[in-house]
Structure formats: C-alpha cells, structure tokens
Amino acid sequence: MDTKLPPYATFGQRIWFYGFRVICGLIFFFLIAPIIIIIPLSFNAEDFFTFTPGMLAFERDAYSLHHYQDFFGEDGYPWSGLLIGLGIGAVLTVILKVWKGNLNLFPILIGAIFGLVIGKLTGLEGEEWMTPLRNSLMIAPVATLLSVGFGTLAAIGLSQTHVPFKGAIMAILISPMIVPLIISAAGMYFFYSRIGLQGTYWGVVLAHAALGIPFVIITVTATLVGFDRSLTRAAANLGANPVTTFFRIQMPLILPGVISGGLFAFITSFDEVVVVIFVGSAGQQTLPWQMFTGLREQISPVILAAATILVAISIVLLATVEMLRRRSERLRGIAPH
C-alpha cells in the first residue's frame, strides 16, 4: 500500500484508503483502550468500576488517591531507605569520579530507587498488597539471575559451529515456553512435593527460572547469530587469550541481548501466577497471585491501582528493551536506519 494517496485516486480508492485506516485505528483502539482505561478508573473516589457522573464532569472530588493509599499501606520506612540509598549512590559517584575521572550521576538515581523500594518493603506486618509485592521482588530477581546465568552460557555453546544434537537440545530448552503453564504447574506440583520443594521459596525460584530460560536463549542466540567471528579472530591475532577476548569483545556485543533476555525472564517471573499458585504456599504469595485472588473473590478497586502501577512498570521495561535492541543493532551494524 502506498503511504500517500495519489492525487489521481478515484473515489472508491479514497474510500478504501481512509476506510482501511479507520479499521486499523479501531483495532489499535481495541488493543490499547482496555489498558489505558483502567488508569483513570483507578483514581475513582468511590468503590465503583465505572466512571461516576462526577468523574465525567471532571469534578475534583470525584477523583482521589485513596486506592493507591490502600495499595501502599502505611508500613515500611521509604524515606529512611531513600536517604540511605542516596547516600550510598553519592559515595559511589565520588569514588567513580576519583577513579575514572568523569562525573556519572547514574549511581545516585539507582541508589535512590533501590533505597526507596527496599526501605518501603522492610518491616511489613501483613500488609495486603505490600507483602505480595515484596515476595514478588524477592523471587523474580533470583529466578532471573539463574536463567540468565545458565541461559547465556548455553546460548554461547549453542552458537558454536559444531553442536551435536542441536535440534533436540534446542527443543528441550525452548519447551518451558511451549508447554501450557497449567501442565508445567501440575507436573511441578507433583514432582516438587515428592522432593520436598513444594511450598518453599526455592521451589518457586527454580520453577520460575525454568520458565524464563527460553526467553534468554532466544534473545541471546538472536544477538549471536549476527555476531562477526572475524572480530574474535582479530582479537586473538592481536594476542588476546580466549578469556580476554570473551570479556572485551564478545560480551559487550551480546550484552544488550543478555539484558533484554533478563528483562523477559524477569517479567515472566514477575507476572507468573499459575505455577506459583501450585508450587508456592501462602508464604510465597506474589503480587499477581494476590490480584488473581482479589479478582476471583471480591473485586476491589485497589486492584486497578495495582494494575496501573504494573502498566507503568511495563512501559519502563518496554522502553528499556526497545532501546537495547536498537543499540545492539547499531553496534552490530545491521540497523535499518
């Protein structure tokens, strides 16, 4: 299809041109609207799930933050955490300045975010939403580390020229993504009960790591496909040993793939609910689990506040992955623009 309508287009062509765009617009609307619409609904002052007349008239009183207050609760020490995080970040910045010479404010930002989150999530006593959030944040990073560690190694192995049984190995490694979650959950529930992992933190972590591995394999092998082997040969030619070559040449090039694979693994674990319901016990209740219970039993508008926050998190993650993908394509010289 041409992007612009030529001046000689007939009436029928005009109808088709605009009609098609309207249809596509409606489909985009269908894709996005449900996600966007929960954002204003989460500021509803009342416990309703629809726009109240007050909201439609944009009255100040019809909007409120009280679902967010319910979501965050009152426990925890966010501000002390923020201060400590800022402090550590500042110290790191100074050290980096002295060591490397350039001023980098990144550690302060990271320190502030981490300090705030960790501070908020310490000293919780049975908070309805914060405890699940803490559990999620305790499970997902560890599962991610496991899948990224094992997955990157294996992806490097798989991208070698001569790999025996490559097809079969690949099929096994990708299978956690293909097998329906309910079947994985059932199998893990039976098997982990036998070996005493059912209902434990490590049971959930191992299960989530297994589910995240296909994503790491796929993204890292994708970056390795375009990898130019003459770079490593050049490094070897200039006298670098294989370990130096790996860390100085190969690693920086595949890092974007590793990070986006890690983000996929993180979001897989962070969003996962079926397996954790079966493999976990009440002590491992995660945020999606809490939302699932909330939706199934009595649906409370706090869920919309939680959903809005998750949407914000996914926007950040999506932006990061997109940025990394473009950076990786640029580095490897295959960028389309």
Binding site: I35, I267, D271, V273, F292, I303, L304, A307, L310, V311
Partner: peptide
C-alpha cells in the same frame, strides 16, 4: 509487555 493479570482485570 503488560501483565496478563492487568489485562484480565481490565
């Protein structure tokens, strides 16, 4: 990228 639970609750 949005959580499955978010879309289902929506």
């Amino acid at each position: 990228w949005t959580s499955l639970l978010v879309r289902t609750s929506a």
